[in-house]
Amino acid sequence: MPRILVVDDDPMVCMAIEIYLERHSFQVTIADGGEAGLRALEGVAFDLMIVDIFMPHMRGFESIRIFHERAPSVPLIAMSGYAFANLDSPAPDFLRMALELGATRCLRKPFAPVALLTVINECLEEAQSRFTSVVQLR
């Protein structure tokens, strides 16, 4: 059963994701912020991390960078509900920037649970195939 760490400062988002994923045979640990998420990373080996961009006590993309640095081999899905009022303005694309900082995939809130499941499965399959190819090289 794959272990997933969900880090989001919104408890309702955490809970919804937790219940949905547990119904689909994932073992889920939720953390209500960056610090709690990092503490959870210390004790347990996760197969995947889902981390919100922009959380309290974390400056900007710090969360993505730190989580990726702590567990570089664990796929990281960045999610964000932040949006600009004027989509035509040359605003920075936070999700693209998250990819550059180490996120494997990005999800823009609101997302459908099916989309989350698809992205999770893609990440896990990619990680599995990478692991298999490394083992074969040895």
């Binding site: 919104d10 309702m12 988002v13 809970m15 919804a16 994701i17 219940i19 949905y20 119904r23 922009f54 509900g81 932040y82 949006a83 009022a85 823009r108 809130k109 609101p110 997302f111 459908a112 649970p113 099916v114």
Partner: peptide
Amino acid sequence: VVHDFNNILTVIAGTIEI
């Protein structure tokens, strides 16, 4: 406001699916 609204929509979509 949009950020909070998107969070709420994510929760609603998730719970409806459940």
